[in-house]
Simulated assay, not measured.
Amino acid sequence: MENNKNRENDSEVKNKDFNRRNFLTTSILAGAGLALSPFSGETANKPRILNEKKHHPLKKGKRKLGSLEVSAQGLGGLSVVGFYTGGPREQANVNRIYREAYEMGITLFDTAEVYGPFINEKQVGEAVAPFRKDVVLATKFGFDVDPDTGQRRGIDSRPKTIRKSVEGSLKRLRTDYIDLSYQHRVDPNVPIEDVAGTIQDLMREGKIRHWGLSEPGLKTVRRAHAVQPLTAIQNEYSPWTRNPEAEVLPLCEELGIGFVPWCPLGYGFFADAINENSRFSEGDFRAILPRITPENIPQNLEMLYYIQEWGLKKDATASQITLAWLQAQKPWVVPIPGTSNIIHLKENIGANDISFTSDELQEFNAGLAKIEILGAQNAEGVMTAMGVEAPKK
């Protein structure tokens, strides 16, 4: 009899404890199911809460990347080009996503020559055509891409390749100027002064208005900025990839350069798209990511659960907490999450209604720092092109 009573007491205590493993099926669930296959590019742990606001939060939030004014959040293009799975989305769906984003206040749309290759620039060009003059189009050069086959033949920022890339981007984007043109990766064989000089020429011709670098070495940033002031740096940055905080963000602040986190939701990890049962189909880039292997996911989910706990405090989803946290770092940080789903688009935009006090931000960061993350930041091939310094002139 006593043993039974003890067992009942133990059970009661366990039930009162916060069960992280059942987080999504207990505390946070309140809506209809949106669960999809673990092979999907959308979500694996769904359903999720979406507290829609009657107003459009991004319409009241503007930020500066250098001198360029943009919405507090942008829209990345990889999801609609089928980077994860499912192939390029139908243009009608892309139009709907992008036009809804614009109506809700997003004015920064990010793409690249190699997304497809070429496909995403065409998608974005058609989608934003009705309001092209009212938005900021950002794209990227820096690879030698075969115009006939789309084969990417390596990093290449020689002046003639930059010009060819920019001319192609202008046609695909249906525009006569690019608002923000990034060097996609630093070319270890071309001095950054030559790159900056080519950009200056293209600016004088009216084909580019602002420029930036993606994943550059710190010395390269200074050298580039000395020739032609940079508007933005675009690096990977999320709760489990915080290395920009040590040196890149301080350098941006010093030089007056904006910062654009790519992959702000960790390839969907912080959007509840990945769980312990997730396995990725052939061709899905996430299949080679070290942090979401079957061995590493269980430990790394601890960070997602931590973010979800904050979501309970602030009546928000993990995606919203993650994006709001990024926006809270600096007033010139503008994340660019991508999606091919309007529900998720609205959810992401809702992050602009969430704020962190300085004390909350400090507490949140301290909690993140205590969680061990297993696995390298990204795939080896991606990592080797990060932080590269351009050769001397």
Rank of each mutant, 00 (worst) to 15 (best):
N341W: 05
A318H: 00
Q362K: 15
A328Q: 04
L374K: 15
F364D: 09
P331E: 13
K346Y: 00
E380C: 01
G338H: 07
L312H: 03
L368Q: 11
S358M: 08
Q329E: 11
Q329M: 15
T322N: 11
G338F: 02
G338S: 13
P337E: 09
S355W: 05
L361H: 11
N352I: 04
A324D: 02
G367P: 07
G381S: 13
E380R: 15
A324W: 01
V382R: 14
A324R: 01
I321Y: 05
Q362E: 13
I354A: 06
L326E: 14
N378C: 12
P337W: 04
I373H: 03
K346A: 00
G350M: 06
G350L: 02
W310M: 09
T357V: 06
N365P: 02
Q320V: 07
N378G: 13
W332T: 14
I354K: 10
A316D: 10
L345Y: 07
D353W: 05
G350D: 06
K314W: 06
T317N: 12
G367E: 08
K370H: 12
I349G: 06
G367K: 10
I336P: 02
E347A: 01
Q377M: 13
K330L: 11
N378Q: 14
D353Q: 09
G367Q: 04
D315R: 14
P331Q: 05
W310S: 07
F364C: 04
